[in-house]
């Protein structure tokens, strides 16, 4: 544990953290839950000269539903998201995904904003945000803008965030009437990052799937929506859905020490069909 010493700044407000980021430039890193950053620091992979702590900033920890959208503050921990009653009622996919992250200690500290900003391709939260068509509220302390989840995640640990920008909140549409959701992931051991993961939403009317959203994670450099699968599901009876899912053309899995590319592609297809079945069952229950 040979850590290069760094200075510490505590931001009382997120806007202060943006000012500090501008003041210190490239040498500075924001810390929220620390569940990604501290591991990188301990391993010597990140060597910030200044660490700006936003974990104690006021606010940004609520799950609020209004006008058909659920808005979750960026400092909301994974544990809170997994157990929040408003989130569970309005968009249960979020809590289901958050509850699968790492272990209990990671969920105690890790935050929504941190997970999205870190943008690990295997992370659960970016995946469900892409599936849900989430929008991220960003601020540089002076101006705010909105980024769409599908455009925000650019690749491995890479996002649209400018150097002085922070995520303040995330909005997702409330689960509409008749919609069902499914979430499936596979990892070697519980708590490991997923080898592949799938998030699915479907709406069934008169016994057929009329709308769907299908996204997968951990099989490329970012989570992706599978438009071809969504099109093929349209008009299918839930029982025929699995047969309609052909080879997944939207993914380019890479092989690594965890799994070969072929195995990941196979796994991904299996998880997508299971998540469709889950979502269909929930949609039928909801009807």
């Amino acid at each position: 544990m040979f850590i290069r010493p760094f200075d510490y700044e505590r931001a009382e407000h997120l806007a202060d953290a943006c000012d500090l980021l501008r003041a210190h430039g490239e040498a500075a890193k924001v810390i929220a839950g620390g569940q990604s950053l501290m591991a990188l620091v301990n391993l010597g992979l990140a060597q910030p000269e200044v660490v700006i702590d936003i974990s104690r900033a006021a606010g940004y920890r609520d799950c609020v539903a209004a006008d058909g959208y659920l808005t979750v503050g960026a400092l909301t921990t994974h544990a809170r998201l997994a157990s929040d009653p408003v989130a569970a009622r309005c968009q249960p996919l979020l809590g289901a995904a958050a509850g699968q992250i790492g272990n209990a200690r990671v969920r105690s500290r890790g935050t929504l904003g941190g997970s999205l900003a870190h943008s690990d391709p295997a992370a659960e939260l970016p995946l469900v945000m892409v599936a849900l068509g989430a929008s991220y509220e960003l601020t540089d302390g002076r101006q705010t803008r909105v980024a769409r989840a599908e455009e925000f995640h650019l690749g491995f640990l890479t996002t649209q965030l400018a150097d002085d920008e922070l995520i303040t909140a995330v909005s997702v549409p409330v689960l509409g009437p008749g919609w069902g959701w499914g979430f499936e992931e596979f990892s070697r051991r519980d708590g490991d990052f997923a080898l592949a993961a799938a998030a699915v939403l479907v709406r069934i009317a008169d016994g057929i799937i009329v709308e769907s959203r299908v996204a997968v994670g951990a099989v490329g450099d970012r989570p992706v929506r599978l438009a071809d699968v969504e099109i093929s599901l349209s008009g299918a009876a839930p029982a025929d859905a699995a047969a309609r899912v052909g080879p997944l053309r939207g993914i380019r899995p890479v092989g690594d020490a965890g799994a070969s590319a072929d195995y990941r592609a196979h796994l991904c297809r299996v998880l997508v069909t299971r998540a469709i079945a889950q979502a269909s069952a929930r949609s039928l229950e909801a009807a």
Binding site: I31, L43, R105, V106, R109
Partner: peptide, 29 residues
């Protein structure tokens, strides 16, 4: 100190009652 990555759990403490990896939290936080 075990792994420094939050994986092994040998540094687990309760912080205001919640389990955390003490290697992944700054004391100042």
């Amino acid at each position: 100190y075990g792994c420094g990555e939050g994986i092994c759990g040998s540094c687990t403490v309760l912080l205001d009652g919640e389990p955390v990896s003490s290697c992944l939290v700054l004391a100042a936080q």
